[in-house]
Amino acid sequence: MYLSLFMFSGEHRVEYVQRERLYLIRLQSAFRNRLPPGQFPYPFWHDEAKWGVYQATNCILLWVDPKTARIVIGQFTERGEGSAVVASKPLSPKFDGNWMWMDKEGRIQPRVTLFDGLFRQHNPYLPKLDFTYRTLALRMRDAQCENCHMPNNPFPMRRLVIMHTPAHAAGEIGRLMKAVREDRMPLDEAGIEQPLEPGLKRALLESGSAFEALVKAAKEWEAAQRD
């Protein structure tokens, strides 16, 4: 959902960083700032400085665990060696305050944040996933999760977990469930972790568990199609 926002020339460099005990792959890149708005996971331009950094990106950093050969961290930077692979004129779109919207054809945008951006159209779990996500979204709203877990990070969290779209929720549902079970959310005005009211917690855990199970089943079905 994020890596496809960049262009690559194929130029790269690999090194082992002893301090981190990880391999670092540097990919020369450039940001695709002229994509239609619905192709971005959310309106990056809501923050002018953040949007500027994206547009200036010239390198993608992938940190790889040598024990598993898996990427554990992905980063972008404007401080890579050389210039971006493609020179593009910076754009300055205006943020209208909407994280999601309907396009002229009546389709929900950003399109890439919907389930059809994650799963095949004929995945048998899609109908139930859509229903359970809607239920979960209502429970998250009741629990005021959207007060914090939004792209603009209203309560500056060191690690922002975004939950406002189906695709983001599918990727972070495990983290959400763990935090709710351990009474680590919400945060009060002083930033101190507080338990949810019992009824809200129970409802959120029930809807979250159903959604988490379906996400797992849908992913397993997708994996089976590739075997």
Rank of each mutant, 00 (worst) to 15 (best):
Q144E: 08
P127W: 03
R141I: 02
N123F: 12
N123Q: 04
D116Q: 13
R120N: 10
Y133S: 07
L138N: 10
F119N: 05
L118T: 08
D130H: 13
T135P: 04
P110R: 03
P124A: 13
T132G: 03
F131D: 12
F131P: 00
L136T: 02
E105T: 08
R120A: 15
Q144T: 03
R107H: 06
L136E: 06
L138S: 09
Q144V: 04
G117W: 01
L138Y: 02
L114E: 13
L118G: 10
K128Q: 14
D116N: 14
K128D: 12
Y133C: 09
L114W: 12
Y125L: 13
R141N: 12
C145L: 05
G117M: 12
P110K: 00
R111H: 11
Q121A: 12
L138A: 14
R107L: 10
F119G: 04
E105H: 06
I108A: 15
L114P: 08
V112K: 05
R141C: 03
Q144P: 00
C145P: 03
V112D: 11
A137S: 15
V112P: 03
Y125S: 02
H122R: 09
A143S: 11
R141V: 03
G106P: 07
R141D: 14
C145I: 04
Q144N: 13
L118P: 09
P124H: 12
Q144C: 08
L126H: 09
H122K: 05
P124D: 05
L118F: 13
P124K: 10
Q121V: 03
L118D: 13
D116Y: 08
L114N: 12
L129N: 08
F119Y: 14
T135V: 14
A137H: 15
Y125H: 15
A137M: 09
L129P: 11
L126T: 10
L118S: 02
F131R: 07
L118V: 10
F131H: 04
F115V: 07
K128T: 02
R111Q: 14
F131C: 02
P110T: 00
M140W: 05
R139W: 01
L114D: 11
C145D: 01
P124Y: 12
E105P: 00
D116F: 07
T113L: 06
R134L: 15
C145R: 04
I108M: 15
R139K: 15
Q109D: 01
L114G: 14
F131T: 05
G117D: 07
T113W: 00
N123K: 09
Y125A: 13
K128N: 06
G106S: 08
C145H: 02
R134Q: 15
Y133E: 07
R111E: 13
R107M: 05
Y133F: 15
P127T: 00
K128Y: 02
P124S: 07
R139V: 00
T132E: 13
L118A: 11
